[in-house]
C-alpha cells in the first residue's frame, strides 16, 4: 500500500494539488509579510479573505467580468486594510486584538451579504486554465506547472517580485527600516506612518485577492466560511518563512503538498485514521520549522506602535 505512494501519478498529483492549494496562501502570506516587515501584525487575514472572496464572486455573478471582479475585491481589501491601518497606526490599538476584531467583522459581513444578496449556492465561470505556449506542451512538467489559471501564475510570480521590492528598492529599504527601528527611520526623514499605511493596505489587497483566487479561479463558488481557517495558516506561514518571500513559498508548498499527500493516503486506502491524515500538514509544518537551523527573530518593532516623541 505505502509503495503505491511512489508512483508517477501520485507524485504528479501531489505537486499539482499542492500548487493549487498554495495559491491563496502565497497571496495572503506575502501581503502579511509586508505588514509585519514594517511592524504591523494583522490577524484579520481570514476576514479580509472572506470579504474578497465574496466580492469577487458577487461581481462575476452579476457581470461575468473577471477582471472587474478582481478589481472590486482589491478595492474592498484596500478599504479593510485602511481601516486596520487607521486603528493600529493612528489609534495605536493592540494589533493582535484589532486583527481578531476585523476577522470576526469580515466573516460576519461576508456571510450576511451572501445571504441577503445571493442566498443560494451557485457556481460561476471563473478564470479559465491558460496553457502557456511551448512550456505548456512539455510532457508532465508542462501539465503541472504551465496549465493553470491566471491567478495561480500571478501568485507564484508575486514571490520574486516581493523579494525584489523588499531587498532591491528604496521602498523595500524603507519598509525594513520602519520595522526594525522606526525611531531611526523617522529621524532620517522616512514617514513611519505612511510606510505602515502602505504595507497594511497592500496586505489587505493581497488577502482579498487570496480570497478571490478561491471563489473565482480555483473553486468558482462561494460558501459561508469557505476559507476554513486558511487566513490563520497564512499568518503562521510568515513566521515559517522567516519574513522572506522565498521562505514563505517553501512553507506554503510544504503545507499544501503534505495536505495533498494526506488526501492520497486516504484515497489509496492506507489504513490510518482519517483524522491522523488530516493533521499531518499541521504537525509537519511545526516539526520542519523546529528542526530547521536558520531562523530569524523577526522585525524588532513588530506589534509595537510608533509615536513620535514630543
Amino acid at each position: 500500500m505505502i509503495s503505491d505512494l511512489f508512483t508517477a501519478t501520485v507524485i504528479m498529483g501531489i505537486i499539482s494539488s499542492g500548487i493549487r492549494l498554495a495559491t491563496p496562501y502565497l497571496f495572503a502570506s506575502i501581503g502579511e509579510m509586508f505588514g509585519q516587515r514594517s511592524g504591523v501584525l494583522n490577524l484579520g487575514v481570514e476576514g479580509q479573505m472572506l470579504l474578497g472572496a465574496f466580492t469577487a464572486y458577487y461581481v462575476v455573478l452579476k457581470t461575468g467580468n473577471l477582471f472587474l471582479a478582481v478589481l472590486a475585491a482589491m478595492a474592498v481589501g484596500a478599504i479593510m486594510g485602511l481601516a486596520m491601518g487607521f486603528v493600529t497606526i493612528r489609534l495605536q490599538a493592540t494589533q493582535g486584538i484589532a486583527g481578531i476584531g476585523f476577522y470576526l467583522f469580515g466573516m460576519g459581513m461576508s456571510n450576511l451579504l451572501f445571504q441577503k444578496l445571493i442566498g443560494v449556492v451557485e457556481n460561476i465561470n471563473g478564470f479559465p486554465i491558460v496553457k502557456i505556449p511551448l512550456l505548456g506542451d512539455i510532457p508532465v512538467i508542462g501539465e503541472i506547472f504551465f496549465q493553470q489559471n491566471l491567478l495561480v501564475y500571478l501568485a507564484f510570480l508575486l514571490v520574486p517580485i516581493a523579494w525584489f521590492v523588499l531587498n532591491k528598492t528604496t521602498l523595500g529599504l524603507k519598509i525594513r527600516a520602519v520595522g526594525e527601528n522606526p525611531e531611526a527611520a523617522d529621524s532620517l526623514g522616512v514617514s513611519v506612518v505612511r510606510v505602515r499605511y502602505f504595507t497594511v493596505i497592500l496586505g489587505g489587497i493581497l488577502s482579498s485577492i487570496a480570497g478571490a483566487s478561491l471563489s473565482v479561479a480555483l473553486l468558482n463558488v462561494f460558501q459561508q466560511n469557505m476559507t476554513a481557517g486558511q487566513g490563520f495558516i497564512a499568518v503562521a506561514l510568515v513566521y515559517f518563512g522567516s519574513w522572506r518571500p522565498f521562505g514563505i513559498l517553501a512553507g506554503a508548498l510544504l503545507f499544501s503538498m503534505v495536505n495533498a499527500l494526506q488526501l492520497w493516503i486516504q484515497v489509496l486506502g492506507i489504513p490510518i485514521p482519517s483524522e491522523l491524515a488530516v493533521m499531518m500538514p499541521y504537525i509537519l509544518t511545526i516539526l520542519v520549522l523546529a528542526l530547521s537551523l536558520s531562523k530569524d527573530k523577526g522585525p524588532s518593532a513588530l506589534t509595537k506602535a510608533f509615536e513620535r516623541e514630543g
Binding site: 492549494l21 480555483l218 473553486l219 466560511n225 469557505m226 476554513a228 481557517g229 488526501l263 484515497v267
Partner: peptide
C-alpha cells in the same frame, strides 16, 4: 467548511 480541501480531494 473547507471547500478548497473538498475540491482537492
Amino acid at each position: 467548511s473547507d471547500v478548497a480541501l473538498a475540491s482537492e480531494a
